[in-house]
Nucleic acid binder design. Structure first.
Lengths: 238, 238
DNA sequence: GCGGCGGGTGTGGTCTGACCACAGTACACG
DNA sequence: CGTGTACTGTGGTCAGACCACACCCGCCGC
């Protein structure tokens, strides 16, 4: 049977995936100890560790040394970290062009705000509004402002309640974090630009609050495309 | 300095990421041998292997034993596999609800077809059309049909030229592959459903070919929402 | 001189065993 | 009854060994 030759760590990974799919493992559960897992599966401990390392980076488990209920490898399923690592490294390795990352973010965020504005129930945007208040402080450095900016955009995704979009947006954002920082340094006037960004943020939130999906979408598109054009000196779309 | 306590494998990962960002490593390049890397960074070989395993699953490198130019760890930056693994496992671990995966796919694919239909240059859809021809064969099993279906939808993303969307769509698709298979088994009439799917695929491609973005988007939404409703017995949107 | 073949060499893949730091736990001692 | 200490089991790491593999080079036979 060709293709059966799996490497030892793949066997471990598949075993754990099968346990997840079958319900033998659920979020909050402990994985068996590394040594026990190795013995059960008939592989070496180092192979088990390679599989666990993958699961950890992917955000599926959290490991802790020591003893007691909080020690060991625990299923957590927090996708944000894994998505960020994946996208950050893919951008670094030139597998993901920055323009594609921005375009994807544009599509998702436009859909998110349109969805929020069009929702039958008014979404809870208190957290987003608080972030905007914090961004009004004149004492903020550029880095602090950008960090709050990231949190604001992410809070919109969170408000949509879509786990996949939230994680993906987090990944996209962290992938281009370095470029956003570098771009901010080359701006003619940071004070001017940041003031404009503040206003655009408020306008986006306002369009959501007044339930105007098309307007919210339009403002998000202008917001992201505008900032991209300003920091890259060439348009986003070919 | 708190937070400096990095685990050995993280040191390796950060070192490689830094090399990528600085341009010391580029796609196609070979990484140093595991033993050399371990010696350079002052860590054990097992720690190096854990980091390389992560990079491999994330789709950044390809490893091969033996000797010669094709052996060793090579930077490849193929995001599809990593995205698939991440999303598949997150769904398995219940971090990603299936409905969120489908919603995200809907958003991205709708944007893709609208973009293709609205592009100034007619996109190349020969590959997509060929897949539809192949799907017309009456000898196909359900699994074979679904496999071609996956390829068709993925070919649309590929035609858009956006690497991030292509990889994300591949991941989303593989994450719900199991559910699509299970859903197909519960259908009242597979022959009837597959015939409808064939027609909808043709209609989507036609709307792109005639440059009607709104129509293409509408048809994609109906296509995906329809199949979801048929296989899940409840609507996609709350 | 030429061609093939066989070992040399370096690669990843795996296992074993050992040690460490850590945290909770149980037990002995005051 | 309280307290503290040794014990136990966890992940984290390293060192060393062996294997299979694939290339490459040089030897040997023709």
């Amino acid at each position: 049977m060709p293709g059966t030759e799996r490497r030892a760590w793949e066997v471990v990974l598949e075993s754990i995936e099968a346990d997840l799919l079958s319900g033998r493992l659920s979020p909050g559960d402990h994985l068996p100890a590394e040594r026990a897992l190795a013995a059960d599966l008939g592989v070496g401990r180092s192979s088990v560790r390679e599989a666990l390392r993958v699961l950890e980076v992917l955000g599926l488990i959290r490991t802790a040394a020591g003893s007691g209920p909080s020690a060991g490898a625990i299923i957590v399923a927090l996708p944000g970290g894994g998505m960020s690592a994946l996208m950050r490294l893919q951008v670094a390795a030139q597998g993901f062009p920055v323009a594609d990352v921005v375009k994807t973010r544009l599509i998702l965020e436009a859909a998110v705000v349109a969805d929020l504005a069009g929702a039958s129930a008014r979404p809870d945007l208190a957290g987003s509004a608080q972030l905007l208040d914090a961004m009004d402080s004149p004492a903020l450095t550029e880095a602090e402002f950008l960090a709050l900016d990231t949190q604001f955009h992410l809070s919109l995704a969170t408000a949509s309640g879509n786990q996949v979009i939230t994680a993906t947006m987090a990944g996209l954002r962290s992938a281009i974090e370095g470029y956003a920082r570098a771009g901010a340094l080359g701006l003619a006037s940071w004070a001017e630009t940041s003031a404009r960004l503040r206003g655009e943020h408020r306008a986006i939130l306002a369009a959501i609050a007044t339930a105007e999906p098309a307007l919210a979408r339009e403002r998000v598109v202008a917001h992201i495309e505008g900032y991209y054009a300003e920091t890259h000196d060439h348009p986003l779309h070919a």
